[in-house]
């Protein structure tokens, strides 16, 4: 698409010739238009660092005839400003909604960049509770990790809460926002764009990068059963390529989660301790996921804590 190519070129030129790191609106986040009016930025498969500004998740926006909805404002106010600039390079329509798909820092800390637009911030009914528990900790960690690049990032409370389903009208375009039971976190939202049959799963779907269990392993597997019956032309994972076939792309994640559940139950059954379980559980998954050693041991600990109550 012509506009996006130009925007990309502008961004590239700014990167090449800017004498100092660019700030504010001048940098545009690189976007891919995966379906008409659906734009996704591809997060890098890394841990948060000053080099990546915590731009590690797939985030983006959906363009209607009347308004724009942001789906995850990004991992820092800086990424949020760059996303906003990328939107403004394409349209002057109001940014009416900023959807926060869940509490994790790589998805929400860009929200502050949109405060001046006065959008509705849409979140799961359990998001405020999760922000209360974790927001402070996440913000301190972000500041430690990004240093000056965390500047302006803050915890923004949702103004519209979703407990089951909410339809958003962007003008000739309806988005169906669904709230899910405890899975990746206890406050996961998905968004279905009816116009292009694009299913934005955020972190309920990990592709290539190892899934993180921070809600309920059993709950996540249950949610997958409900999600995979929803027909869509494509899906947007929270981490992975910007567009993947649905539901085929979920199979690796399901296999990992099922393996985790089965082998953690077995470890508990034979009395393997919580600290040792990760050495035995899920080793067949090693090599199949990026960042395996960074997250797998914690996934096993979380699963163990959940499953030992069964």
């Amino acid at each position: 698409m012509r506009i996006s190519q130009r925007a990309f070129a502008v961004a590239a030129i700014l990167f090449l010739f800017a004498p100092a790191p660019c700030r504010g609106e001048s940098v545009l986040l690189a976007m891919t238009e995966i379906a008409a009016g659906v734009f996704v930025h591809n997060g890098v498969h890394e841990e948060a660092s000053p080099e990546n500004d915590n731009a590690i998740a797939n985030i983006g926006f959906i363009l209607g005839d009347d308004a724009v909805a942001v789906v995850d404002p990004g991992g820092s106010a800086k990424e949020g400003r760059e996303l906003r600039a990328a939107i403004r390079a394409r349209t002057d329509r109001p940014i009416r909604y900023v959807i926060l798909t869940h509490v994790h820092p790589d998805h929400i800390f860009g929200a502050a960049a949109f405060l001046d637009d006065h959008p509705s911030f849409v979140g799961h009914a359990k998001l405020p509770g999760a922000l209360a528990q974790r927001g402070d900790y996440y913000l301190r960690r972000l500041r430690e990790t990004l240093g000056d690049d965390a500047e302006g990032s803050e915890v923004v409370a949702p103004t519209i809460l979703v407990s089951s389903r909410l339809d958003l009208d962007l003008g000739e375009r309806r988005l169906v926002v669904r709230a899910h039971g405890p899975a990746h976190t206890d406050n996961d939202l998905t968004i279905f764009d009816e116009k292009t049959r694009t299913f934005w799963l955020a972190d309920l779907l990990f592709v290539d990068r190892i899934p993180v269990v921070d809600g309920s392993l059993v709950g996540w597997l249950k949610e997958l059963d409900g999600l995979t019956v929803i027909a869509a032309d494509r899906a947007v994972p929270g981490h992975g390529p910007v567009s993947v076939p649905w539901p085929a792309a979920v199979e690796a994640e399901r296999r990992y989660l099922e393996t985790l559940a089965r082998e953690t139950r077995a470890a508990i059954g034979v009395g393997v301790g919580i600290a040792d379980a990760y050495r035995e559980v899920g080793q067949s998954e090693r090599g199949k996921w990026l960042l395996f050693d960074d997250y797998h041991p914690r996934n096993v600990t979380a699963s163990y804590k959940e499953l030992e109550w069964e």
Partner: peptide
């Protein structure tokens, strides 16, 4: 000590004080 607790807060509340 300051790490966030509670992966599933509804469950934590419902199960408060139960033992196994």
């Amino acid at each position: 000590c300051s790490a966030p607790a509670g992966k599933d807060q509804a469950l934590a509340l419902e199960r408060l004080g139960k033992m196994k």
